[in-house]
Simulated scan of single mutants.
Amino acid sequence: MAQQPRIAMVAGETSGDLLASLLLSGMRGLWPDLQAFGIGGPQMSGQGFDAWWPSERLAVHGYSFEVLGRLAELIRMRRQLRGRLLGGPPDVFIGIDAPDFNLGLEADLRTAGIKTVHFVCPSIWAWRADRVEKIRSAADHVLCIFPFEPALLALHGIAATYVGHPLAGVIPMEPDRRAARAVLGLQDHDAVLAILPGSRSAEVQYITPRFFEAAALIHQALPAIKMIVPAVPALLNRIEQAARTCGLGDVLQVISGQSHTALAACDVTLIASGTATLEAALFKRPMVIGYRMHPLSWRLMRRKQLQPWVGLPNILCKDFVVPELLQDDATPQSLAAAVLQWFDALEQDPDRMTALHQRFTALHQSLQRNTPQLAADAIQKVLAPTA
């Protein structure tokens, strides 16, 4: 291995871009002049990453049905990437999340003698336990973001390291609500709802209309409420159009990005299931988790589910700490009612709010580690020549 390694990486979507950028910052502490290239997003590019394709090309919503329309494109992109990496082998390949794309690629590269690392253990403890065999064949090492995962992987002979959750180090233990509100032009006394309908194109199709219809009902009940919608820049126009279609063009404040600012500023969030729910928990915010997808994808996913919870805060707390309204249960009426219950609790049930804050603080503490350094150290060991 060269003293300054060549590192290939593939990160899917906004969350993967963030994880990979933090990993890059840790690796540059060990190897300031490393070369990093592959598939990535703007935060990775800010760390000197050479993005051959943008990470948003991997953003696919649903379990299988929605993938079909883009399957040929994804297969072609992976084939081209594989050929390019086999033609000029990196010292290590790091797949960041996106297991459906990365695990097969990692297996091929590993067979060719390239070291492979997978960052973020696929949720075999929540659904699709059959993936464990793919992980074993694909990855020399797995970097885990939840503390119970290395022991689970060890049962299957898979080397792994717990590195903490990067977001737990980025998000402060006590967020500055006042400063965040100042950035968004909000007053300290405002009742504020953050609406996060997802970062994928199909999520706009399936989730945003329900969320915005619920927002209209919430606005009827609380006319003075302020509602903030952080949108992925690529989807900003579609979300603004959805707001106008629901008659909320003058009510919803749609902003480009700034999801952390919105979560720090809000009192309650209505949020799509995914990594953003863990971010909301780290911000100690009460939330209502909602999700919808194509009915066929929903039926397939439900058959693979291993736990009663879908939202990450509930999975990690092993309890329905916050409500989940999924698929047919995610009606505008039920979503609005659940959100309004949180606003009522803010005024009338301080014990409930204190208990939620304590649960989320304990969760935050359990995930807080020096993730960039721990991950970089684990990768250095993978790259170390064997005796």
Rank of each mutant, 00 (worst) to 15 (best):
6 R>S: 12
15 S>K: 11
20 A>Q: 02
20 A>L: 06
29 G>P: 04
30 L>T: 11
31 W>V: 11
36 A>W: 01
40 G>S: 10
49 F>M: 04
66 E>P: 01
68 L>I: 14
69 G>R: 12
70 R>N: 06
75 I>Y: 08
75 I>G: 06
76 R>P: 06
76 R>Y: 11
93 F>P: 12
95 G>C: 10
99 P>N: 12
99 P>C: 11
106 E>T: 09
123 S>N: 08
125 W>Q: 02
133 E>I: 05
138 A>T: 12
141 H>M: 11
143 L>K: 06
145 I>Q: 08
145 I>E: 04
146 F>C: 13
146 F>M: 15
152 L>Q: 13
154 A>V: 05
155 L>I: 10
162 Y>C: 05
181 R>P: 15
194 A>S: 05
196 L>D: 00
197 P>M: 03
202 A>C: 04
211 F>Y: 11
213 E>D: 14
221 A>P: 03
223 P>I: 06
223 P>V: 09
227 M>R: 00
227 M>H: 02
230 P>R: 07
233 P>R: 08
236 L>G: 04
240 E>P: 06
241 Q>S: 10
246 C>P: 04
252 L>W: 00
257 G>S: 08
261 T>N: 09
262 A>Y: 09
269 T>A: 01
271 I>E: 00
275 T>R: 10
275 T>I: 10
276 A>H: 13
276 A>S: 12
294 H>S: 07
299 R>Q: 13
318 K>D: 15
318 K>F: 05
322 V>R: 01
328 D>V: 09
340 L>E: 00
342 W>D: 01
346 L>G: 02
347 E>L: 00
358 Q>F: 09
358 Q>C: 10
363 L>D: 07
372 P>S: 09
379 I>P: 01
